[in-house]
């Protein structure tokens, strides 16, 4: 007992015990990392100009607004149907076209299926750029270029999808077992034929599952891209917001919520079946 537990009894160590390892000095690195994190946070605190008093003040003035927000006006429902339908239409079209176009692009963007180095690099770079521009930014530019409405919405959803799908599918292709492709090439097939016959079947389930995922993202996105004028529910949000019709606003938001949750249920059910 005493041999083990006596504190400070260095003489009482068990015979045969070797030198104890010294405690590794990890703390300096940790302190530095922590300091950097704290510094960045402090800087962001200052930059965004945290001012709780203003919030509290505005909040007390906004009681009327809050009451309206918690009392959706269901008589407005009829007027929301058309934008709601448009939202779904935009999402479906954007998904269909985006996913169709992304399939060949994914094969061009994967090292496993495209042996042409310069072309691979080019496609990847372009797709990286396309992906790093947010959907709402596309929408605001298209609205200025082709005008307000669903066309701008569909175009921006299309580009948004392209970026996501090509990344997901080309990464899936990178990870696929390439045996079948090797066999096809060894039997005299061209790369195009080998990719089609041996690589496409291997990613097909993932392609379908990601398409459903992208549809889900699109429904979400198409509810809001209207805020800058690209059609759908977002345009309605923008309208009722400018006229301070908060009991209408809360109905629209409720609808978005229901739509997104329904789709999430559907998509997770379908995807679960696919994985099985």
């Amino acid at each position: 007992m005493s041999a083990v537990a006596a504190p400070g009894a260095s003489a009482a160590r068990l015979p045969g015990a070797g030198a104890r390892p010294s405690r590794p000095r990890r703390w300096p690195a940790r302190v530095v990392v922590l300091a950097v994190l704290v510094a960045i946070t402090a800087w962001s605190w200052v930059a965004v100009d945290v001012d709780l008093a203003v919030i509290a003040h505005n909040f007390s003035n906004a009681q009327n607004t809050l009451v309206q927000l918690f009392q959706p006006d269901y008589s407005f429902f009829g007027e929301t149907l058309q934008p709601l339908l448009e939202t779904i239409q935009m999402a479906v079209i954007g998904t269909a076209v985006g996913c169709a176009v992304s399939l060949p692009l994914s094969f061009l963007a994967s090292r496993a299926t495209n042996p042409n180095g310069p072309l691979l690099g080019f496609v990847r770079t372009v797709m990286n750029v396309v992906r790093s521009i947010p959907d709402l930014l596309y929408a605001s530019i298209f609205v200025t270029v082709v005008g307000t409405g669903a066309l701008s919405g569909v175009l921006s959803l299309f580009l948004f999808n392209l970026g996501i799908m090509v990344k997901l599918i080309s990464e899936a292709l990178d990870g696929v077992d390439r045996g079948g492709q090797e066999a096809a090439l060894a039997s005299g097939a061209t790369w195009l034929q080998a990719d089609r016959a041996a690589m496409l079947p291997e990613v097909a389930p993932q392609y379908v599952s990601q398409t459903i995922y992208v549809l889900e993202l699109n429904i979400r996105a198409s509810t809001v891209i209207g805020l800058v004028g690209a059609g759908g529910l977002g345009m309605l949000i923008d309208r009722v917001r400018t006229f301070y019709q908060y009991h209408y606003l809360s109905l629209v938001i409720l609808e978005i919520l229901v739509l997104v949750l329904l789709l999430e249920l559907l998509s997770s059910a379908v995807r679960k079946r696919l994985v099985r």
């Binding site: 906004a62 509810t223 809001v224 805020l227």
Partner: peptide
């Protein structure tokens, strides 16, 4: 959590805008 994930951030911002006004802080 599920409810918060279902609402797009922009919509949350629109709601906050109606209540407190939109600044960088409310965006955050």
């Amino acid at each position: 959590f599920a409810l918060l994930r279902a609402v797009p951030e922009v919509v949350i911002a629109v709601l906050m805008l109606s209540v407190t006004g939109l600044t960088a802080f409310t965006g955050a």
